[in-house]
Nucleic acid binder design. Structure first.
Lengths: 253, 253
DNA sequence: CAGTGGTCTAGACCACATC
DNA sequence: ATGTGGTCTAGACCACTGA
């Protein structure tokens, strides 16, 4: 006998921990409630703090928890549905869109964007910064790249930078027909500037939505929007209002 | 004097490391190339292995690296664009779609899905499993929930489970008109079964795409597809063929 | 088998928020 | 000043891959 081990489960501790915590969150905690601190939790489960943290990290990634330095770990509300695309297509800045212009400066776009815009290397474009707020919380930060050729009639009357300038650029865009747009979504990590805007630490997971606006057979503008991955569910179509019971993903087999 | 420190950079080591490695990847490594092992790299940069791993983790999250236990860390190819929705809407299983039916069993759907389908609690539905392959690599695993009412004429002739059964269900679906569909995308972590299918470890980051198929005013089917977040860029519209230079996100200020 | 990445520990110190 | 989460260390052992 001796080594009789019905323990056929080489399941990592942090994984099991995550499952246990997840169930506890469902049954014993209310949204917004503060969990015991990490040192206590680790002691209670008989693991090192690093292991406990590995479990918390996953739960935060899944939008179940929210951790804030100096404050504590709280139970997160369900993710908010954020409408990224509806059936109608329209220019950014069209009346009623969810974004707020923050700034506008001329700058050289990153290579990937210059590619789509087919601008020359080193050529500057209008770079608008916009933010999006939902339920009182910032959910996304956007950089919108608009080449000068897309807003030929932009006058020098407006300020050379700032929110007013941004609004002027958006106004000029509306004057052209929008042929179509296409999008891509991928996982990224927040740059320092975006992180600040989103009230997260640099490196936080974000969903990066790249949108190309097509007009007159060319790409007239490119938007790169970074959404907080922990709090957002991006919706396409009419499903914005659909309520989700709980995290539709994740759980042990 | 004494404590003169021009070091005004309380930037975390792993963050700086990530930046350095990222630049090295751009300039000194080819896709598929194997990096030195973690212990060597850590020693080379004068940090603990855990710190080095924190940097590698982020780079893997961003799709720059691929790590495989027992093998090593390799430079990942650019993310593949995966078409999730085109302008045409169609049922799953329509000719030419990218999915391959694997299995079909009756089961009770998770609460969130039962909600959308408006099935009674405890009511079983057809649960199809499908996988999606791109460039020879598995990129997504799907669970498709189809209530019996959506396939009323499904005969008992077919096998009670298995791929043949799955194809029969899909065939029956095509017989009805599709009114529309809407989608949501969010970040999740791979369940054990999905992870196996995607050739990843459990807990790996995935993009969860939830699709509702509407027919006759009701939700006729619900699909929950999990895409590998490290290797996939989900595309909506006509941008599937667009080439991306490099990770359009992330980097220090 | 040797070598890889994956997990885990028990500490330490730091940055930050709050009282 | 206290308590929180965030970073970091220097080890250890395990699970897996491939020769």
């Amino acid at each position: 006998m001796g080594t009789t081990q019905l323990e056929a489960a080489p399941e990592p501790k942090y994984w099991h921990l995550k499952t246990v915590l997840s169930e506890a969150l469902d049954s014993e905690f209310a949204v917004g409630e503060i969990l015991p601190n990490e040192r206590d939790l680790a002691a209670r489960f008989g693991v090192a703090r690093a292991t406990l943290r590995q479990a918390l990290e996953q739960l935060e990634l899944e939008g179940r928890l929210q951790r804030r330095r100096g404050v504590g770990t709280t139970v997160a509300p369900p993710r908010v549905g954020v409408a990224v695309a509806s059936t109608d297509q329209d220019w950014p800045g069209a009346s009623g869109d969810a974004w707020q212009a923050v700034d506008c400066v001329p700058d050289v776009p990153p290579a990937a964007v210059a590619d789509m815009l087919e601008t020359a290397p080193g050529e500057t474009v209008h770079v608008l910064r916009r933010t999006r707020v939902s339920h009182g919380q910032p959910v996304a930060a956007e950089l919108l790249y608009v080449p000068s050729t897309s807003v030929p009639d932009l006058t020098a009357i407006d300020a050379p930078s700032g929110a007013a300038r941004a609004r002027a650029v958006l106004r000029e865009l509306q004057r052209f027909g929008l042929d179509g747009q296409d999008r891509a979504v991928e996982l990224g990590s927040a740059r320092a500037d975006d992180a600040k805007e989103l009230d997260r630490l640099p490196g936080a997971p974000v969903l990066v939505v790249t949108t190309r606006y097509l007009s007159g057979g060319v790409t007239a503008a490119v938007s790169m929007a970074t959404y907080r991955a922990d709090t957002c569910r991006l919706t396409f179509g009419d499903s914005a209002g659909v309520e989700i019971h709980h995290a539709p993903h994740t759980q042990a087999s």
